[in-house]
């Protein structure tokens, strides 16, 4: 085939656009309406363009053996009784053959949708659980890093460490001193679960006396650094203070990490009472509905509410 008939749309080529955006070809509608009898120059031109299609005009006839085979299949297939409700043309026109014998019906779709929803929920829950677990682990690692920072600081400062009151805001700045003096990276003084981090207020709290104190005089079982004090965080975020039985501001009430006076780290999944007999810090996990009988908690008291 050496000759190339000129196409009537050489100047309209636009292969990038949507097919249905193309302008109409003059004469084509006329050709279709007239049974492909050209009555204009444009129509004749289009017909010439499509002339190569004539090579497909000749097709083999359907052989008798094909017809017989078709009839044999039909006769071997009992006619189903007419359905009580009218079938839709599309459903009739699709079923059967070439692996498409199964037709989706509404209950099937609901079943599939419900299964997908369930699988998605499980995956999301698993993902959320893994994320929280990862944050818990990171928080514990941060507390351990702070213990190392305290030890290093004490070594360089005649065994003394900075201290402040436990439940006043400046105590947060005390931890910050470890960062400023290069004993601890900045990210190690932030609980990864605390929403206050963006405002720079999610530092771990330090419970030591005012001024400086020698580390060997610290009560070995008394927490000196812990997860953020939720009352302080709420105060600085400007949100209502959580009640003692409230849910978590962080960790989803799953655990608590404390650096004790002997610089060991305690990670607890159970409520923690400090100074038995006089509760000044308690971790109330999600799901608890009552406090111990000696829990006389003042909102200003420090407790590691979760």
């Amino acid at each position: 085939m050496s000759e190339t008939p000129p196409t009537p749309f050489d100047d309209q080529h636009d292969s990038s656009g949507h097919p249905e955006d193309h302008p109409n070809l003059p004469g084509l509608d006329e050709l279709v309406d007239s049974g492909w009898e050209p009555h204009s120059e444009e129509a004749q031109h289009l017909l010439d363009t499509l002339q190569p299609l004539e090579a497909l005009r000749e097709t083999p006839p359907a052989e008798d053996v094909l017809v017989h085979a078709t009839l044999a299949r039909i006769k071997a297939t009992p006619t189903p009784s007419a359905p009580s409700s009218a079938a839709t043309p599309s459903s009739i026109a699709t079923g059967g053959g070439f692996g498409s014998g199964f037709q989706f019906r509404l209950p099937d779709l609901f079943g599939v949708a419900a299964s997908l929803l369930l699988a998605t929920s499980i995956l999301l829950a698993l993902g959320r659980g893994a994320k929280l677990h990862s944050r818990d682990e990171l928080c514990g690692a941060n507390i351990r890093a702070l213990g190392t920072a305290v030890e290093s600081f004490a070594s360089d400062h005649r065994r003394e460490v900075p201290s402040s009151n436990w439940n006043v805001v400046p105590s947060l700045a005390t931890v910050r001193q470890f960062v400023d003096d290069g004993y601890c990276p900045h990210q190690r003084v932030n609980c990864p679960c605390c929403r206050g981090e963006k405002k720079g207020i999610s530092f771990y709290s330090v419970q030591v006396g005012p001024g400086r104190i020698r580390v060997d005089r610290l009560d070995p079982r008394r927490p000196i650094v812990g997860d953020p004090n939720p009352l302080q965080v709420a105060n600085m975020l400007g949100v209502p203070a959580p009640g003692p039985m409230s849910g978590a501001l962080s960790h989803s009430g799953r655990c608590s990490h404390l650096l004790l006076g002997d610089l060991s780290v305690r990670s607890s999944r159970r409520p923690v009472w400090i100074n038995k007999g006089r509760v000044d810090a308690v971790w109330v996990p999600r799901g608890h509905t009552s406090l111990p009988k000696f829990a006389l908690i003042d909102p200003q008291d420090v407790f590691l509410a979760r």
Binding site: E20, L46, L50, S90
Partner: peptide
Amino acid sequence: LNIPVGTVKSRLHSAVRAFGELWGEESE
């Protein structure tokens, strides 16, 4: 095909145009 007449028209126009172009490339 269970589609609007307008869609049939536009698709046919696209098909004829595409055939002409592809056949032109084939012939060259």
